[in-house]
């Protein structure tokens, strides 16, 4: 079996989804950790320092390529799987009760993922683009904390960000344990542990992310 055969098989595709998913899960820990520096409430001094390191250090910038590659692979593969899965049932049931045997969020990974992709595009346009322009134009006065403060003055943006976080929560809640199942880990002792860990992870990460725009909007952080 060649690598091509492996990765284009149905299970191989699932492996690349699970692998990139877990990779993005790791990234979110770093992302949430760094952004949580705003909670130090020091006018964003620490946060800006860390953000500057992340945008200027060449190792980080190299890893950024991997991050985008992982994200794009996860999204494109997900969309392809979605399309292929729809083809597997060309005639829909006239009457179906999927809620009797599975959770809505496990069946909605495609829609949740699409919402997340839209959110990520919005999110990048808010923060990533500005940082990159500053980096390549040699603008040393760029203040990411101030940019956050400006963006999060608009109530509609807060609502959109919270919607993004809610979609992220359900996506992670299913995705975390699903990735382990895909890698063949199903164990009486470890599976409940993985599920607990995944739930805890999804709650903590999403609470942190939700708190950031809210805290800035309500001026808890200055």
């Amino acid at each position: 079996m060649t690598f091509k055969h492996f990765f284009t098989s149905s299970i191989g595709k699932k492996f690349s989804m699970a692998f990139t998913g877990l990779f993005l899960i790791l990234f979110l820990i770093v992302h949430a950790g760094i952004n949580s520096c705003i909670f130090l409430n020091d006018h964003g001094i620490t946060f800006n320092k860390v953000a500057r390191f992340m945008s200027h250090n060449w190792i980080m910038r190299f890893m950024e390529i991997g991050l985008f590659a992982g994200l794009i692979l996860h999204a494109v593969q997900g969309l392809l799987l979605w399309k292929q899965n729809n083809k597997a049932r060309p005639v829909a049931y006239q009457y179906n009760q999927p809620s009797k045997n599975s959770s809505w969020y496990s069946r909605s990974m495609g829609i949740l993922g699409t919402l997340l992709l839209l959110f990520i595009i919005l999110h990048l346009s808010h923060f990533y683009v500005g940082t990159k322009i500053a980096l390549y134009s040699g603008d040393t006065t760029h203040n990411l904390f101030k940019e956050m403060d400006d963006v999060f003055k608009n109530l509609w943006i807060i609502v959109l960000y919270l919607c993004g976080v809610i979609a992220l929560f359900w996506h992670l809640y299913h995705g975390f344990q699903s990735a382990f199942q895909t890698f063949g880990i199903h164990h009486k002792k470890y599976t409940p542990l993985i599920k607990m860990l995944g739930t805890g992870y999804a709650i903590i990460i999403c609470l942190l992310f939700a708190l950031m725009p809210i805290a800035m909007y309500l001026n808890w952080i200055q």
Partner: peptide, 29 residues
């Protein structure tokens, strides 16, 4: 032309013989 598993676990819930999704995990590994 079967579709790809997305771990909704609906199969296990509806299986008349109660076949566990542990078998899917084993297939994966």
């Amino acid at each position: 032309g079967f579709g790809n598993c997305t771990n909704t676990y609906a199969c296990e819930a509806e299986c008349p013989k109660g076949i566990s999704i542990a078998n899917i995990a084993r297939l994966n590994s």
